[in-house]
Structures are given as C-alpha cells and as structure tokens.
Design a protein around this nucleic acid. Structure first.
Length: 806
RNA sequence: GCGGGCGUGGCGGAAUGGCAGACGCGCCAGACUUAGGAUCUGGUGUCUAACGACGUAAGAGUUCAAGUCUCUUCGUCCGCACCA
C-alpha cells in the first residue's frame, strides 16, 4: 500500500478551475468544418438570493453531456448568460434605492462566481446579458420586424391587472388568480396594450411539434395549450334587427336543440342595443360584478351558474325558425371563440346546468341517452338524430357534416378552426425592461424608430416607482418622452411601456452563436453552423410560456430569413425539482432551503455535482438528503484511495476486462439517455470490484477516471496528473468499449417450475433456444421436475428456464 | 371537472414482460484502532426455529412468466380551468 496525500477538494478544485480558464479549455471554436454539438440550459435570472440547489441539477446534467461530447471530438457550444430584466430586481432597487443596473451587475457577478465554483464547462467568452444595450438592441430590432409585419399591435383589451405590481400581466403569468411573481390578487381592467400575434403561428407551432424530439409531457402540454378545435361558426338572426349574432360551436349537429343563447357580459352588442334593452342597468351591474372577479373567482363559483336574461333582445334559431331568449353569463368568455354561444342544454353539461337553474327548455336532438329532462346526454360517439328536421335518423357524425353544408348553402355558417391560444400581452408599465422602440406622432400615428437609431437606451432615472395611474415610470421623464417623429420630424412622444421579461429569453439561443456581432443579431454562417440547439433542458414550468414564446420568435425569424431553422430546439428534456429534506418545495417561508455554498464547503464541488445526479431519476422531483450526499463524497475518496493500490500494468487485468468494458458501455449509454443515477451506480460497482481485487492497473484506473470525469471533473484531473497519465483529461478521447471483451463463457440462469424459482445453474453463455433442450438432462433440472409431466419448456437465453409441469 | 404523471424495504431509488429490491443512505455485527462520526469485512423486505411461504397502493384480468400490459378502485403530485 503506497502512501498517498490527503484529498483536499478546496485546493484541487480551485487549481483546475484556473487551468481551464487560463487555457480556455471549453471555448467553442469557429472551426465550422468540425461536427458541432449545441447544449443549452435555461439561462438563470440572477436573483439576489444567488444560486439554490435546484439550479445545479440541470446544469450538471448538460455539463456531463457537453464534456462527454467534447471528448468524443465534437465542437461543443455550451454557453451561459443572464436573463436579467425583471421585477424582483426592480422591486429590490426601489426598496434599497440602488439602480437596477447596479443590482443586476452585483447579482451576475455573484452567480458567475457560484457557477465557476461548481466547475461547469461553460464558454464564458460567450456570456450574454439581456440588459446589455448591445443585446437588447437586437431584442428591439426583432420587435420592429414584427411591428412592420403587423404581428405587434396595440389593442384595447381586458387585461390582467396585478394589484401588487401595479402592472399588466400576460394570461400565462396569472396563477390561481394571483400574480405569479408577487402573489397579489389579479383583477380585470380595460387598457390599450401592446400585443404580439402569437395566434398567427398557432398552427405552425402545432405542426412543428411533429418534427422535434421533445419529451412527451412537453409536447402534450403545448398541444393542449394551443388547444386546436375544429368546429363551425353559425349566425343567429337578432330578432327585429339587421344584425346577426355569431357563435362558435363544435356541435353544429345539435343546432335544432339550441333553445337559448348566452353572451359574455362584455359582448359589444349589449352596448349597441342599449336603447332597446329594458334591463340595461341590471346587465351592467352583472358585468361589473363579473369584472371585479379574477378569472379564478369567475370559475370558482362555477358549480352555481349565474346569469341575467336580456330583456328586449331575442334571436332566431336558423334551423327551427323559432325565437329564443338571450342571456348573459360569466361562464362565456369574450376571449375565446366569438364571445357568444348557442346553448343546447340536452347535450352540453354546462348548458344543462344553466337551463335547469333558470327553467329554460331542454329539447332532445340526439337519442340514445336517458331522459334529457333528468340527465344531460353529451356523448358524441353514439346516438341518432331526432327532432332535427331533415337530419332525423342520421348519426352525429353525418349530422355534423349535413348541418354545416346546409348552413353554408343558406349563408348562415362556415367551417372554422379555433385555438385556445391567445395573443401575448407584450407590455409592462415598468422601468426595468427593454424600451419599446415606437414613437407616437400626432400626425403620423405609431411610428417605428429607424433601425440605425437602435438601441433605444433605457434612460437613467432616480425614481422607478410604478405610477398609481398604471403608467410606466418612464412617462415621468419628459425630456426622454418628448422627441421628434422619425417620419415627419414634428413633435412626438415615445412609447413609455417596456417589454416583458420573456422578450430577452425568446431569442438568446441565437445570440450565443455569435454574441459580439454588432451588425446583426448573429452572423448567418454562425447560425447556419450552430443551429438548431441539439439538446435543451429546462423546467416544466416553462413549457407553455418561454418554450412556446421562443419557438414563436424563432419561427418568425425563420420566416423573414434570419434563423436558418424553423424549429430552434431539436431535443427538449425537463428535470425534476430538488425538494427540501421534508419533501416539500424549497422556500424561504418553509425554512427548508439548502445553500449550495455550504454544501460545496462540506463536500467539495465534485461530490456535490455527483449527488445532484445520483439522488434519483433526473426527471423526477427528489428531496435533498445531506447524508446521502456524504455518500458521494465517500465514493470520491474511495476513488482517490485507489492510488494506494495502483500497479505498473498499463493494460486491463483479465478478471476486470469484462467489467471495465461493461462499465464503459453502460456509462456511455446512460449519459446519453439522461440516466445519470444508474451510470454512477455502475461506476460504484466497478470501484467496489477493484477494491475487492486489492489492486488496480493503470489501464483500469484511466478508464474509470475518463468515465467519471464529466461528473467529477476536478478530482479526476488531479489523480490523472498525479500519476502521470498524460495530457489533461479534457483533451482526452472518450473511451471505447469492446462488445467481445464483455462476453463471459458461462452465465448463471434461474430454473423455474411453473414460474417459481427452484434453483440456479451455470450454462454456456451462447446457449440458444434450439440447443436448450439439452438442459432437460441437467441433473438439477431433472431433480426440480421430479416425476411430473413436462407441458412446456421455455428457455430465455442468458436469463432463465421456465418449465411448466402438470 | 378535464388532461398528464406517480404509488416498490426504515429512507433516496434499480429493474428491454424473464431471478424484485442494483447502487447509495441508515442500521446491526466483526476487524484494525488509545479513540472513531475514518477505513475494511459481513449482514440487513416481511413472516418462520427451520423447510418454506408471502411480498411492488387495493382488487380483477391477459400470459409459461406482470412492479412492468389491460380494466376498476383508492391515494398523491403537477398542469389547465365553465374552451362552446
């Protein structure tokens, strides 16, 4: 046993981090002739709290992938940056009277130091920062391109108003009726808003999913979010007027059963027919009550339907010609479909509840259910049309076709595809965001800034407080607001809203390809070479927000010839959350937050990284366990101590050959398949075998260190160097395995009688099903069978032998 | 309510339909030690003195064989929210 020095992670980790930095070991090169690999993690929001133990999980996972791909000869782009605009920083700045830019800089420096402490192989030369004017210049540029093509527009819309942030939120940012960021209640409010027409890309965003390798959960969520539904739009004549009331329905077959209609309380016809409506005040009261509620409250009370009948306005069912009443109710949303529905209580649960409550007629048009007066019959798969004139006797499917054809022919309907996806509210009345590069001119209207005048810098101001009126703090800086119209040169005013935090993160993966370019958002050749991202990992919580937004921006940029690919991400995976030791989500209020700095002090970065990967399946939420993490530290020390039993043999010893090759295979495959925990378990098994054997050859040790390097990069480099194994591991090729070397002569298989284990025997490893009959003579088999009758003889090579007996 | 996931020892978790519990934590015993919260060795699902039986939330089914596939139920987590 040789004397070996103590393992001191603090020392060797700093040493290797410096060597990597000094040698730019992980810089992606611009050698476009090499095969490339682009790994991407969601760049962090540099919050004041610094890194928590959740961050390093996906970061370590893709660091492993990046390091392995480099060793396999790829030119790897593994970048990092900062998604630094946003409310928490602004709120902190307001509270502490510091400029958000200063706060941001401090937070970024802290984050970078923490990431470096963990030894991630990021290419720090390609860092991007969304708050850097050289970066947001291009965010603004993309906005202008959208504006010029009508995809960015202003609209007076009911918007979500956060009572805490004094700010408008996207629908997607409202969680359970409260603001996703601050938790304050969200109410509805009418406001003129910048919108991005993501709905124009609904179908493309849907279609694009067919060609990408995203985990199923992500695809399903995005499909549901986009929510395509095929149906029809049908016009109902407003009785006594020239107007028609248009509805969207997926059940046009049930048109004969439409016994009343329901409008959203915000429907414009209520204003339009104000004079004709006798209970206008009651309607207004109902509408006001509905608007005071958030979406959440509006739906909370859904067990008990509410509504008011419009007195003085009725519609004609186009099929029956009958006059039917019109109601308003908050369960009909202005933001989906046409803001009005035809109600078929016999065959729609909500309509049935509503009709029962208000005593409205229920007419069966599809037979096959029970009495529709007692129970709704919404089944579309079975049933025959009744009470439906020319459609009687048809199936539902036939009636759907017949009804819409009839409607088209008679000019009161058309086929229509609807999406749940809504346009993206793209403005914030806040300071810390990208200024929207638009000027309001009394003569020319909304005028885009000239591209050569970008970036439009965020002015330096003292007071960032949101205004009580809901206007941006920028509106108070008159010498910034007042400007000349780029078109006519006359006096004009700047747009004072800023962009939401999602803007900068919607295209950062393109900037990484060429982050310092000031002529374009990135050079064509760079984009051509690096895009698409080969592997993007991020949280499930971003599936319907960031992931969809960034696909939208990239598709737009593809359409205008900027991005070379229509889909930006080839593969998308998602990591599970790291929970507190109590199995609950980590949060300050619960007091179960684990600090990564403390963990690195205790364990070293290598053991910390290893535990993050070993703790459980990568895609599942796992509680943190510090004692479990100590086990990883012990394993690393075990690897370290192998130096004490190192021999001079450069090869593999005969009895280890199969294990070493099997480990190379298992680790290689498991890293690619995100099964980091079982890859590490396999390496632990190998080390256990080596310790048991009592010696390790240089060849065996090298193989182990190469495999372990992506997980524990510092300690493996140190051992490699101490024992003169050659140039640093980061320059070494990934080990290859030899299938032939793994083959053993004999394997143990189980003998089962009627599926129950009755013994184990050794058989030649290459024994095939055809040759297995010889096993009938095997003494152990004969013994196990006894005097019973063999009915069936099933041999699974390398696994087991199952004999069915009577 | 709809959609999706999950349910395996004391704990985290393994397991292309083919020997359930790999690997790690914890625990027990032993060795080496002045000492051990270091290291090494052995053990560790439940019941049983043992042979053996039972065992992957519960119940049924398919199969020579089910943690894995199908159905029902329960629990739990996540997403969505009256979507016409």
């Amino acid at each position: 046993m040789r004397e070996i020095p103590m393992y001191e992670p603090a020392k060797i980790e700093k040493k290797w981090q410096k060597i990597w930095a000094d040698n730019k070991a992980f810089a992606a090169t611009n050698d476009y002739s090499k095969p490339k690999y682009y790994t991407l993690i969601e760049f962090p929001y540099p919050s004041g709290q610094g890194l928590h133990v959740g961050h390093p999980r996906p970061y370590t996972a893709l660091d492993i992938v990046a390091r392995k791909k480099r060793m396999q000869g790829y030119n790897v782009l593994h970048p990092i940056g900062w998604d630094a605009f946003g409310l928490p920083t602004e709120n902190y700045a307001i509270k502490n009277h510091v400029h958000p830019a200063e706060v941001t800089k401090k937070n970024i420096d802290h984050f970078r130091a923490q990431l470096q402490m963990l030894g991630f192989s990021f290419d720090y030369d390609r860092e991007v920062d969304t708050t850097d004017p050289n970066y947001y210049k291009w965010t603004q540029w993309i906005f202008l391109q959208m504006f010029k093509r009508g995809l960015a527009y202003k609209s007076n819309m009911p918007v979500n108003w956060c009572t805490g942030c004094k700010c408008v939120l996207a629908n997607e940012e409202v969680v359970d009726g409260v603001c996703e960021r601050c938790g304050s209640p969200v109410v509805h409010r009418q406001q003129s808003q910048w919108m991005l027409k993501i709905t124009a890309y609904a179908q493309k965003l849907l279609d694009g999913l067919d060609d990408v390798d995203f985990i199923d959960r992500v695809k399903i969520s995005q499909r549901n979010w986009i929510g395509r539904s095929e149906g029809s739009e049908v016009d109902f004549q407003l009785e006594g007027t020239q107007d028609k009331l248009r509805v969207f329905t997926t059940r046009v077959d049930t048109l004969f059963g439409a016994t009343y209609m329901v409008l959203s309380p915000e429907h414009p016809y209520i204003e339009k027919y104000k004079d004709q409506i006798k209970n206008y005040d009651a309607l207004m009261e109902y509408r006001a009550a509905a608007q005071r509620k958030s979406d959440f409250e509006r739906t909370e009370i859904n067990k008990d339907k509410t509504g008011v009948e419009i007195d003085g306005l009725r519609a004609i069912n186009p099929m029956t010609g009958k006059s039917i009443p019109i109601w308003i109710s908050d369960y009909v949303l202005m933001t989906y479909g046409t803001g009005a529905i035809m109600a078929v209580p016999a065959h729609d649960e909500r309509d049935w509840d509503f009709a029962k409550k208000f005593g409205l007629p229920i007419v069966e048009v599809v037979s096959g259910g029970k009495n529709v007066q007692e129970e709704c019959y919404p089944d579309v798969a079975t049933g025959t049309m009744v009470n439906s004139g020319f459609m009687n006797g048809m199936t539902v499917a036939e009636a759907k076709k017949a009804a819409i054809e009839y409607a088209i022919e008679h000019g009161f309907g058309e086929r229509k595809i609807n999406y749940k996806l809504r346009d993206w509210v793209f403005a914030r009345q806040r300071y810390w965001g990208e200024p929207i590069p638009i000027v309001h001119c009394p003569k020319c209207g909304m005028v885009p800034l000239d591209e050569k005048d970008l970036p439009l810098l965020l002015p330096d101001i003292k007071n960032y407080e949101p205004t009580e009126t809901g206007e941006s703090p920028l509106s108070k800086i008159t010498d910034w607001v007042n400007c000349k119209c780029p078109q006519c040169g006359g006096d004009a005013k700047r747009e004072t809203d800023t962009m939401p935090q999602w803007a900068g993160s919607s295209w950062y993966f393109l900037r990484y390809c060429d982050p310092k370019n000031d002529m374009a958002l990135a050079a064509k050749e760079a984009l051509q070479y690096w895009m698409p991202v080969d592997w993007y990992n991020g949280g499930m919580e971003h599936t319907t927000l960031h992931l969809l937004y960034s696909r939208f921006w990239n598709q737009f940029l593809y359409d205008i010839g900027v991005s070379p690919v229509s889909e930006p991400y080839k593969k998308r995976t998602s990591h599970g959350m790291v929970l507190g030791t109590d199995g609950q989500k980590m949060s300050k209020s619960r007091g179960n937050v684990i600090n990564p700095d403390e963990m690195v002090d205790l364990l070293g970065a290598d053991a910390f990284r290893m535990y993050e990967m070993f703790m459980g399946a990568f895609d599942q939420a796992i509680p943190w366990s510090t004692t479990g993490a100590v086990g990883c530290r012990k394993f690393i020390e075990r690897v370290w101590r192998l130096q004490g039993i190192l021999t001079d043999d450069e090869g593999l010893s005969d009895d280890m050959k199969a294990s070493v090759h099997a480990t190379i295979k298992k680790v290689s495959e498991d890293f690619d398949g995100m099964k980091f925990n079982t890859a590490i378990a396999q390496m632990m098994t190998l080390v256990n075998e080596l310790v048991k054997k009592g010696s390790v050859t240089r060849g065996e040790y090298k193989a182990l260190l190469l495999l372990l390097n992506p997980v524990a990069p510092h300690v493996t480099e140190e051992i490699w160097e101490m024992n003169g194994f050659g140039a640093p591991i980061y320059t070494q090729p990934w080990p290859e395995y030899d299938e032939a070397a793994m083959v053993k002569d004999e394997v143990e298989i189980a003998i089962q009688i009627n599926g129950k284990i009755r013994g184990r025997i050794m058989v030649p490893a290459n024994l095939t099903r055809e040759d297995a009959d010889t096993l009938r003579e095997h003494p152990d088999v004969v013994k196990a069978v006894g005097d019973k009758q063999i009915v069936k003889f099933i041999f699974v090579p390398g696994r087991l032998l199952n004999i069915v007996v009577k």
